[in-house]
Amino acid sequence: MLTVNEETCVGCGWCQTFCPQDALHAWGYLEIDYEKCDECLVCIEFCPTDSLSMTNS
């Protein structure tokens, strides 16, 4: 499951622009739409603050 580290995420919204599924939305903080996210990992590659990761849940 895609997880955001709220301590380091600044809400820059870069991930939103790279997500092929349009599953991410930044509005001062990041919202993840888990219905749309297909765990492709693209957002993790492009996150400038290393705030995104995949966790087991």
Partner: peptide, 10 residues
């Protein structure tokens, strides 16, 4: 279209 915040780590 988009909202971007720059602070803290970036």
């Amino acid at each position: 279209l988009h909202v971007g915040c720059y602070w803290g780590e970036l």
